[in-house]
Simulated assay, not measured.
Amino acid sequence: MITMRAAAGSRIVIHGAHVDSAEHRGEVVETRGEDGGPPYLVRFDDGSESLLFPGPDCELEHAHPEPDAP
């Protein structure tokens, strides 16, 4: 079984279950599982927050660290 891994700042997209369903997007605020595993506390773009166990309709966009300034 492959487990999704996230970090604070990662973006999560929940794809709509139906053709006309909107996607939900948010930012992972906190990971509560071991080693970045679920559940995740997610702040959605509409301002709501939820504890999320991602399913097959979720996609994770990892946060990229800022490059060091010269």
Results as ranks from 00 to 15, higher is better:
H15F: 11
H15K: 13
G16Q: 01
A17F: 03
H18Y: 14
H18V: 11
D20F: 13
D20L: 13
D20K: 09
S21C: 06
S21H: 09
S21K: 05
A22M: 11
E23K: 13
H24G: 09
R25Y: 04
R25V: 14
G26M: 07
G26K: 01
G26D: 07
E27A: 10
V28F: 00
V29Y: 05
E30D: 13
E30H: 14
E30F: 08
T31Q: 03
T31D: 03
R32Y: 11
R32W: 11
G33L: 05
E34H: 13
D35M: 07
G37F: 01
P38Y: 12
P39S: 12
P39E: 08
P39D: 08
L41D: 08
L41T: 03
V42N: 03
V42W: 04
V42K: 02
V42C: 00
R43S: 04
D45R: 06
D45E: 15
D46T: 06
G47H: 02
S48M: 06
S48R: 13
E49L: 09
S50C: 13
L51K: 00
L51F: 03
L52G: 07
L52Y: 09
L52N: 11
L52W: 12
F53R: 14
F53H: 11
F53K: 10
F53L: 14
F53C: 12
P54F: 05
P54E: 02
P54A: 06
G55Q: 04
P56G: 09
C58F: 14
C58T: 15
L60G: 03
E61N: 09
E61K: 10
E61I: 15
A63F: 00
